[in-house]
Amino acid sequence: MDSPFELAHAAADHIARATGVQQHHIALVLGSGWGGAADLVGETTATLEASEIPGFSAPAVEGHVATIRSALTPDGKRALVLGARTHYYEGKGVRAVAHGVRTAAAAGCRVVVLTNGCGGLNADWAPGTPVLISDHINLTAASPLEGATFVDLTDLYSARLRAVARSVDPSLAEGVYAQFTGPHYETPAEVQYAKRIGADLVGMSTALEAIAARHAGLEVFGISLVTNLAAGIGTEPLSHEEVLEAGRAAGPRISRLLADVIAAI
């Protein structure tokens, strides 16, 4: 299919047939550390292998799951839980990165929840700290939009949804997320650069998805889990195992938080 939107509609049609659900209301993209939220959002009524859905493939990163779920929330909403995230560094192209959120929009969702594990630039945010995303800096030199497609990103990350999250947990901090391309971690100099241009968090996902989500008409809620202090901020060497361990340690608490926020939306 030439159009990424045709492919998204094909994926949404497949999901509708396979789950028996004609419309979903909210989508969740679960990054490192956030997978446990899938079990708390509501009753899972269908689980699909991502690789069987048009445009999706099994995730290439340990800590992500290879399924897409349909869940019924306690208030009767339908949640589409996207465990299969494609990262820009996988080399599959920006269309593949944006496919999940475009499919969510085609499936009827009006809200998308984007989560990630990230490096923190604020030494007061210990590993395991959830941080609301208030804005982003896209350092990938790419865009999911093609041609003369002009989209206002002034209020990309919904202030309304951040207020809902703070009504659940008033202690939640917020900050600006900078997406680098990865898969290597940032150097200390790059971290200082990001800090000087206004970033509080650094990672390898989310920003490109958020842009595509806004273009598709979705209201965007972003939340990061600080899994480590970024290079040069902390003293420990960086590793993916550290990211996974921080996610495991914080998983039950942040998953409950996210489920409570979704219930309040």
Rank of each mutant, 00 (worst) to 15 (best):
F56N: 05
G76H: 09
V61M: 11
V65Q: 14
P59D: 07
F56D: 02
F56C: 02
R69D: 12
H64I: 00
S57W: 00
K77M: 14
I68P: 02
T73V: 09
R78W: 09
A60M: 11
P59R: 07
A71V: 10
S51W: 13
P74K: 06
I68G: 01
K77I: 03
A66F: 04
S70F: 02
D75Y: 05
P54S: 03
T67W: 05
A79Y: 03
K77S: 13
E52P: 02
S70D: 12
A79H: 08
P74F: 06
D75P: 00
L80Q: 08
L72D: 08
V65M: 09
G55E: 01
S70P: 11
T67D: 07
S70E: 05
T67H: 08
S57Y: 04
I68N: 01
P54M: 00
F56A: 08
L72C: 05
S70V: 06
A79T: 06
P74L: 04
A60D: 12
R69C: 08
S70Y: 00
G76I: 06
R69F: 03
E52G: 04
T73A: 06
A66R: 12
P74G: 03
A66S: 15
A71H: 08
F56I: 01
R78N: 14
T67N: 11
H64S: 10
H64K: 00
G76W: 08
A71N: 03
R69H: 14
V61Q: 10
S70G: 15
G76A: 08
T67G: 00
A58Y: 07
G55V: 00
A58I: 04
G55S: 12
R69V: 03
H64N: 04
R78Y: 07
E62K: 14
P59I: 00
V65W: 04
P74R: 11
L80H: 09
A60F: 05
F56M: 07
P54N: 04
R78T: 12
S70W: 00
A60T: 13
D75I: 04
R69T: 00
L72S: 10
L80Y: 04
L72A: 06
E62I: 14
P74H: 09
P74E: 10
V61Y: 10
S70T: 12
V65G: 06
R78D: 10
V81A: 09
L72W: 12
D75F: 01
A58S: 15
G63Q: 10
P54C: 07
P74V: 06
T67L: 03
L80T: 08
P54D: 09
F56W: 04
A71S: 14
D75A: 14
P74D: 11
E62L: 11
A79M: 10
A66V: 02
H64E: 05
S70N: 08
I53G: 04
G76C: 09
S57H: 13
I53P: 01
V61E: 08
P54H: 05
K77Q: 15
E52A: 14
A58Q: 10
K77L: 12
A71D: 06
T73R: 12
G76N: 13
K77W: 09
D75C: 09
V81G: 01
V65H: 15
S70I: 08
D75L: 13
P54V: 00
V81M: 13
S51R: 15
F56Q: 01
R78S: 12
S70H: 11
